[in-house]
Each structure stands twice: as structure tokens, then as C-alpha cells.
Design a protein around this nucleic acid. Structure first.
Lengths: 258, 258
DNA sequence: TTCCGCGTTCCGTCATGCGGAACAAGTCCC
DNA sequence: GGGACTTGTTCCGCATGACGGAACGCGGAA
């Protein structure tokens, strides 16, 4: 009974040496300073001889370098180039769009993605549900701060100095029927609630019969990439029967902060 | 006569699969967008089957990821961690970051540190000022060569063969309103001026009302470690009243070359 | 439908990575 | 100064697993 090829743990056939290499690189990345061969070997549960073969090839290809004096190993120039390339191709928005598409397919609700633009929350992407469309958000539309779930999430999760001018305008303009909050005290309470529960919910405030739930998408659990909202007829998006739906969206949004 | 173990080209015995892996990773790093399997295979002079085995293991270990929709491959989270770790263990950059923090505390301006990546000037660190933020630079952002002060400093202080391809692209693309220079002659004069005065200044070219001053950080007065830029509203960063500020930044940058 | 083109898997062969142990070069300790 | 560590590096025979080549399955185009 012979196994013929290495399999990755998801069952695809791969190259075992590469996965060993991955573990060693991970190890070097975790270390804050150059690591001695014996430590690499010990941490990777391998013999020094084996670890040495890998490290020699890392050095040859630039993934690692070896300090000439101490003989210790650290990450090399190719690792840095990899990281810079990965950084610059890292588009949180692309991930966000992929997430929205997945959710739309699973839940069949219209999903709207907004980011913070110069005039406030700006719609950058929409995934339509197959439901009869009641209201479609146009890409590029700027949403009001205090009359949409999305706006509230920006107000709750963005540093105050971003949002303050627009909030002041909204309160002053006082188109009060549409506002979630009429004054500072109400607003403070409302934003605290949004932060506590992790999302904002809008039941027909902007348009009768249309509800929306909006969730922050945070990068590395801190910086706000954008706000994802599900919108639809209020018999589909609501807190009672839709609790499962909102929980799923919540999970997905939380998951986004890997 | 049988060879028993793979040798690196400097004669040390290594792991051949790791060096193949290094070449593929290098390739992925050079690509600006996700790459199809057949292109990886062609560029690496290998069969699609072989390339696939390596990529499968990259995905399993996090070095790469595969876009679910297009099936194309790009660098993954482990690559990013490698790069960040390599960056932060690089002593000159640590010094640069410490310097920026000190300057931010003293001057209260937003400071941005960029290094040279495969796609050009890449933001790797930001120290925010307490001023209302007009424009925030995201880590990982790639800056245009001829429309930012930072880009100009790279163009002026990096060996020409690094920057030439990107400069040619920028001139050809000809989004001319944003360019500091429209043609080679203008550019030559401009870069000579940047070298002479030791910094580049950008008055609202990239975004209205936002100015920036960028300074080279040289290691031992020769090798360019990165470029440090101060950005902010143009009534704070300018040549006249802000001369003291620019002088201080200038001093700090010069001092960096101990 | 049939025909690509492409990602992915399968399979027998043989190159090559593995463990174990030897060797080399410091470094400590008496 | 010399022996006995420790640590990095190389050597070697064996069996493991990577390779080339071809087949498979799927999705899009004709």
C-alpha cells in the first residue's frame, strides 16, 4: 500500500517540502530576532540536518539570510518583496465585495457597500437580490448621516472628527422627520447602542416599507474599511423573524476581521 | 555517477523544491494582479501539473491564495506577515519609524513612510497627527511616481534603472494634470532641483488643499532606506510660513545619515 | 450539441529528501 | 592548554514523494 503523492490537508495533492518550508517561514516571521538553527529545528520538530537543508535553500533564493557573524537565520530580501507586493495588492474592498456577493447568493437580499468619501457615506457597490426591487441604490450616491443605518454605523465607528461636520449639518438642517436623533443627547445614546450591538437597523425611516441593517467592516479589528448593509422590504429584514438573517450577517461581518 | 542531494548554486546542499518555490513566489510578487495557473507554469518553464502542486501547497500554508471566482493565484496572508516581519526586523526602518514618531510628537503633522516595492513607492508606516484628517494614506498604498512628493524623491535618489519603467509609464499614461513634469526635459530639471535642495514639495497636486514635503532617508549617506513625508493642509505645510517646519524636517532627515 | 481551453488529478518511474551519524569549528571549564 | 561540551554543516543509503505525461471534468464559445 503506497501513498504516492503528498496531499494538503484539504485533500489537494501538493508538495510536502513546500509545506514544511511554510512552517519554517512562519516561525521565522514570528521570531522578533534572528534564530539559531537548533531553535528552528526544535520548534519545527525536525533534525538540525533537515532544517539546515531548508534554510540553505531559503538563503539561496533570498527568502532568508544568515548573519555572517552569529550564523543565525532571519527573513531575507525576497520575503520583504513578497510582503510589499502582498500589501499593495491587498484590497480590503475587494474582499468586502466578495463577501457581499457570497451573502447575496446565500440570503438573496440586496446588499449595499459604502465607504467614507468627502461628502459622507458613499455607495461604491451593490449586489441586487432576485426579490422584486423596491428601491435601488445608485453607485456613487451619498447617504445621509442620520437617516440611514449605514450613516449611523459610520457615525458610530469612525473617529469623530471625520463625521462631526456632517452630523452638525444634519442636526441643524433639521429635516426632523427623517432623523434617527433630534439632538446630541439622543444621538449619543443611539451611537452607544449601535457600538454595543455591532450594527444599526433602520425600519422604514428613509422610505416606507423598506428596512435596512448595516454592519461595520473593520480591517484587523480596528480600521473601518466600509459599511455593508442589507436592504429590503421590512417583512424580510426585521429583528423578529429575520433574527437568523441578521445573525448571519453579523457573523459574516465579524468574520471579516480575521 | 548519481547526484544524491540538491545543491544550491553556492555549493551548499539544500532542498530543490524550496528553490522552485522561491522562483514561483518571486513571480507572484512581480505580478501586479492574480495570475492564472498556465501563466505561472509558462513563466517558470514547468508543466501546469507541477505548478499546480506547488500552488496547492502555497494555498494550504497561506503563502498564496486562490480567487474562488477566477481560479487565479495571488500572494496570501503568510506572505504579508513575512514582509511585515522582515520590515520590522530591518534596523534602518526601525530607526526611521522611531524618527517619524518623534517628529510627529514634536510637530504634530501626519508623517508617512514609504519604501520601494515592486510596483513603486509603497506606504509602510503612518503616524497620524491630531489635526483633522483630510486624506488618510493607507498602509500598502502605492503612490504615483510623478504626482507625489514622495515619488519624486524616489525618482531623484534611487538608481535610474529602478525607477525608469514606472516613470516611462507615468509619462506615457499622460494624466498630465497631476504630473509634476510632462516630458523628459522638465523632469530632468525637476529632479536636479530635488537633489540640490534635498527634498520635494507638493502643493495640492494630488488632492486640493493638501500639501506634502518628502525627504530621503539615506543609510550611511548613500543607500536609500525610504522616503519620509509630512502631509497636511496647505496652510500648515508650505514654504513661506512653514519654512521653520520644513527646516526642522530637513535637519532630522540629514541627521538620519549618521 | 461539439469543441476547445483550462484547472485539476492520476500513475509508474526514478530523482531526491530523510534520518542518522560523522565532521568541523568554536566555546566553555577546569 | 586541553579535553568535553555545543552548534553548524556535510555525508550516505534507502524509501518516499516529486516528476512528466496523459486523462478527466467543467465551463464557455462556436
Amino acid at each position: 500500500m503506497k501513498k504516492q503523492a503528498a496531499k494538503t490537508d484539504d485533500g489537494r495533492t501538493g508538495v510536502k517540502a513546500v509545506e514544511v518550508a511554510g512552517r519554517i517561514l512562519d516561525l521565522l516571521a514570528r521570531a522578533e530576532e534572528p534564530v539559531a538553527l537548533r531553535d528552528v529545528a526544535a520548534a519545527g520538530h525536525m533534525s538540525p540536518g533537515k532544517a539546515h537543508r531548508y534554510l540553505a535553500s531559503f538563503v539561496a533564493s533570498g527568502l532568508a539570510r544568515q548573519d555572517a557573524a552569529t550564523r543565525r537565520y532571519a527573513l531575507g530580501p525576497l520575503s520583504m518583496r513578497l510582503g510589499l507586493a502582498a500589501l499593495s495588492s491587498h484590497q480590503p474592498l475587494r474582499d468586502a465585495i466578495a463577501l457581499m456577493r457570497e451573502l447575496r447568493n446565500r440570503l438573496d437580499e440586496t446588499m449595499v457597500l459604502s465607504v467614507w468619501g468627502a461628502q459622507g457615506p458613499t455607495v461604491v457597490h451593490v449586489e441586487e437580490s432576485s426579490q422584486p426591487v423596491i428601491m435601488t441604490m445608485r453607485i456613487g450616491a451619498v447617504l445621509p448621516m442620520l437617516a440611514t443605518a449605514t450613516g449611523l454605523v459610520f457615525a458610530a465607528f469612525l473617529p469623530q472628527h471625520f463625521t462631526e461636520p456632517l452630523i452638525a449639518d444634519a442636526l441643524k438642517a433639521g429635516d426632523s422627520t427623517n432623523l434617527f436623533a433630534r439632538n446630541r443627547a439622543e444621538l449619543r445614546r443611539l451611537l452607544a447602542a449601535v457600538r454595543a450591538q455591532g450594527y444599526a437597523y433602520n425600519h422604514g425611516h428613509l422610505m416606507r416599507g423598506v428596512s435596512a441593517a448595516a454592519f461595520p467592516l473593520l480591517e484587523r479589528s480596528s480600521k473601518l474599511v466600509g459599511v455593508m448593509a442589507a436592504m429590503g422590504r421590512d417583512d424580510r429584514i426585521n429583528l423578529d423573524r429575520g433574527a437568523g438573517l441578521i445573525a448571519q450577517l453579523m457573523d459574516a461581518a465579524r468574520n471579516f476581521n480575521r
